[in-house]
Structure formats: C-alpha cells, structure tokens
C-alpha cells in the first residue's frame, strides 16, 4: 500500500517537471514565418495557425479593395445556407510597388443565403460572403463581397404560358443562380493588417489603376494589376510570358453563336421538359435564355447569356 502511494507521488512529480520544462522552452507563439498556405487544400478549411504579423511588413489598411475569384462552382440549386466554398485572390495585392499577396492565395467563403428556383417562376437566390484569404500565414479577413443575385423573374412569361398550359405553369421552376468557377468579384479588407513583402513588383505604379472605395482612408491603396517582371540584369533569363487568364463568363457567352431574336427552334417541339415551354415562350418574345447570374457577373452588359 505504501509503495503505491510512493509510485503515484513519483509519477505526479515527474509530470509536473515535464510540464514545467515544456513551458520553459516554449515561452510564446512562434514568430517564424510559416510556409505559404497556398498548398493547403482549401476544401478542408483546416484552421490556419495564427502567426504574429512581421514587424517589417507593409501595412494594408482596412477597406482596401481586392479581387476575388471562386475556385468552386456555386449555385442556388445545390447549395444551402452555411456551405463553405473555396476562393482565391484573382489579382496580386501590390502596395507601393511591393507585392504583399500573390495571385492564387486561397481562402474560404460562405453561403449566406441560398434558395433554389421554385414553382410558378419563382427565381432562385444566392448570397455569398468571402470570409478570409490566407497569405504567408496571415489571415486577411474580408467583407463587402459583391456577389449576390437572384434569378431572372419570368412573371410575364409565366402569364403567357398560363394561357397555353393553365395551372401546369406552377410546375415550371424559376431560374437558378449559377456562379461557375473563376467567377470574379470584389471584396474589401475588413481590418488593418501587416503583411510581409513577398517580392518587388516592377509595374510602373504611376500608371497602375487605383481602386479606392468611397469610405476608405487616403492611405496607400494597392494596385491590383499584375506586374510583369523586368530584371535589371541583361543576362538574366527572360521573364515568362504572362499566361492568359481563363475566360470570364461574359466572354464565354459572347463566343457562343446565339440565334437571332424570334428564331423558332423546332427542337422545342420535341422537348419533354416542362421548362421547354418556358423557352418557347421566351423565344417567341424575342428573349434569350440567361441565368441571371451571368448577366450580373458580366456587369449586366449585352443581351448575351448562357444557353441551356
């Protein structure tokens, strides 16, 4: 019995000594710059350890506008409120000729509200929010993500269709909102942050477009243009040619050969989907199919749209 107590006391003493030793060797959070989190799979959304911002970094003020692109496809049909999706920085953040965040830095967004298109032409809705971007171990919290839309309202088309198919018009669902991968939108930095300088951008800062919000202070505004690298050493290897960015949805829409307004497609007579009646009505009215989101992402320009 006595040796049991002695063994327990010895074990307790050894545990306390180990804890004291660990606390002595690790006084605080490591300040060593962590590896870039770009390689971390965004779909896992693992908690990135918060790093102490470097003391010699560049200050990025709040309300700085950044360009964000979706990595995943997001639509109002399959997504629900609270779903997470991956986002990335579409353009690097450059402050005073210094790149502090590279293009492609990944982060996370969240679906704030999603509703699929309902019967009677009720349009779908999708509201997205960009939460953060991880850059060199520092988490950039984002806000004011301008990517929210509702599907086009087909009320007039429903009224016309009701004349032909009557109550069956209730089975025609409204448009859903679809944001394919690489859809781009703007967001703002939620709070002041200090980022390490990754590289010197050689783009002429005088000609870089300044994207400044109405409410942002007059501090340094990052130019979101991509800077082609120009080396001072003539013997240095030639810089790689700028890669062509993937086509935006509006460019994809314009490339497609769209039929002229009022063109009657006989395939609609063979369509078995109820939604084909809606397309027939829209064709007769001289309108083209569109997801609504494509127009929004495209800035609402032109009559183009994505044909089903």
């Amino acid at each position: 019995m006595k040796w049991t107590w002695a063994l327990g006391a010895a074990l307790l003493a050894w545990t306390n000594a180990a804890v004291a030793q660990n606390s002595a060797t690790q006084p605080g959070v490591s300040t060593s710059p962590a590896a870039s989190s770009v390689q971390n799979p965004p779909s896992s959304f693992a908690a990135t350890p918060v790093q102490t911002p470097p003391s010699d970094g560049v200050r990025l003020p709040a309300d700085t506008m950044v360009r964000i692109a979706l990595v995943d496809d997001v639509n109002s049909k399959d997504r629900t409120r609270g779903d997470k999706f991956a986002i990335r920085l579409a353009k690097p953040i450059i402050v005073d000729g210094k790149m502090v965040a590279p293009a492609g830095a990944v982060g996370m967004g969240e679906v704030v509200y999603a509703e699929r298109g309902g019967g009677g032409g009720s349009p779908g809705k999708l509201v997205l929010a960009a939460r953060y971007i991880d850059v060199a171990g520092v988490r950039l919290r984002l806000k004011a993500f301008q990517l929210a839309a509702g599907g086009e309202s087909d009320f007039r088309e429903m009224q016309v269709a009701a004349e032909f198919i009557g109550p069956a018009v209730m089975f025609i669902n409204g448009h859903n909102v679809e944001y394919p991968s690489d859809t781009r939108a703007t967001a703002k930095i939620a709070e002041d942050v200090v980022l390490p300088v990754l590289s010197l951008a050689e783009a002429p800062t005088s000609t870089a477009p300044q994207q400044q919000s109405a409410g942002s202070p007059g501090a340094a505004v990052p130019a979101t243009t991509v800077a082609p690298s120009v080396s001072a050493n003539p013997n240095a290897p030639a810089p790689p040619a700028p890669t062509q960015s993937p086509k935006l949805p509006q460019e994809i829409a314009r490339d497609r050969s769209l039929p002229p307004p009022g063109y009657f497609d006989p395939r609609h007579l063979l369509a078995v989907r109820v939604v084909g009646a809606r397309g027939l009505v829209r064709q007769c009215l001289g309108k083209r199919e569109s997801t609504g989101a494509a127009l929004v992402a495209a800035g609402g320009e032109g009559p183009g749209g994505l044909l089903p």
Binding site: G120, S122, P123, A148, A149, G150, P167
Partner: peptide
C-alpha cells in the same frame, strides 16, 4: 412576382 395558385406571390431577391 411569381405565379401562385390563388394569388400572385411577391418575392425579393438580391441585385447589383
């Protein structure tokens, strides 16, 4: 507005 069985339904959607 969307079609309803008896009366039309109002709806609100985000816009740009």
């Amino acid at each position: 507005i969307s079609m309803g069985m008896i009366v039309n339904h109002p709806n609100i959607s985000p816009a740009q």
